[in-house]
Computed example of a mutant assay.
Amino acid sequence: MLSPELDRKATIKQVKRFFEKDFRTLQNMAHISYMNIKSPTLKDLPDKSVVSNASNSKTNNYMYAIETLAEVRTALSEINRHSRKLIEYRYFKQLTWYDITGLTEYSLTHSQKLLNGALIEFANAFVDVEDLRVFKSKGGEDNDL
């Protein structure tokens, strides 16, 4: 059986959202200083099970952010070098399109087209962590799978 057709436009939009929102949040979470977190003791544990231990929650968020950012790095290492550079310029260094076209010597339109291809490559490489791909359904509607 053939796999469903990838909705390129919707997938690109989904990956852009990941880099513009989730990725920045993960970066912020990973750079929070946890120097003031002490090891939890029995007296620090909450009385009721519905309340979480704030120290554990902060540490878990920090570890989740670190692990996910490492997975982003791994996925980027699996894509084309030129694609990786475009993603780095746009989302890691947050360069303007003017700066990117100067560095790549491609036109604005060509740079944007290449970045869209890079985002599709990333979506395919990142699928084991989070599936950012969107597929077309048989009825013509778009569905996330």
Rank of each mutant, 00 (worst) to 15 (best):
T109S: 14
V50Y: 07
Q94R: 12
K58E: 05
K43R: 08
H110N: 06
S39Y: 00
K16V: 09
E105F: 02
S57P: 04
T11M: 00
Y91C: 06
L95V: 14
R84C: 10
T11S: 02
N36Y: 06
N61F: 12
Y98G: 12
L26W: 00
Q94F: 05
S39N: 05
M63A: 14
M35W: 07
K58D: 04
I120R: 00
K113T: 05
M35K: 11
A118Q: 02
K85G: 07
V72H: 00
I79K: 08
S137T: 14
K136V: 08
I66W: 00
D22F: 04
L26T: 07
M63L: 11
E141C: 04
Y91D: 05
K85D: 09
N80C: 09
L45N: 10
P46S: 03
I87G: 02
G139W: 04
F23K: 04
K113H: 03
K113Y: 07
N56T: 13
D128V: 14
S83W: 00
S52D: 13
N61P: 08
N28L: 05
L45Y: 05
A75K: 10
T109P: 01
S111C: 10
I79S: 09
S107F: 01
V127Q: 08
Y64M: 14
K9I: 15
K136R: 10
T41V: 14
L86N: 04
F18A: 11
N36T: 13
S77N: 10
I37R: 09
H110R: 12
G102S: 04
I79L: 06
T101W: 02
D131F: 03
T74R: 14
A118S: 06
I32A: 07
T109A: 12
S83Y: 03
T101E: 06
S39G: 04
A10V: 08
R84M: 10
F135M: 11
T25F: 01
F92P: 10
K138R: 14
N36E: 05
D144Q: 04
L119V: 06
G140H: 02
K43P: 07
N61K: 13
D99A: 14
L95M: 13
F126Q: 09
Y91F: 10
K48S: 15
E88K: 15
F122P: 10
E130A: 14
S55A: 15
E105D: 10
I32W: 01
Y91Q: 02
L69P: 05
E130M: 09
V15I: 05
L6K: 02
V127R: 11
K58V: 11
A70P: 02
D7E: 01
D22K: 14
L95Q: 11
R81K: 06
I66N: 03
L115T: 02
L132V: 06
V129N: 01
M29L: 11
F122L: 11
A123F: 00
A10K: 08
M1A: 06
L95E: 11
Q14H: 07
Y64K: 15
N36L: 11
K58G: 09
R17Y: 05
V134L: 00
R17S: 03
K48V: 15
Y64G: 09
E88V: 11
A65G: 01
Q94P: 04
N143Q: 12
F122M: 13
S107G: 09
N124S: 09
S107P: 10
S49H: 08
D131R: 12
K136S: 09
T109L: 13
T104F: 03
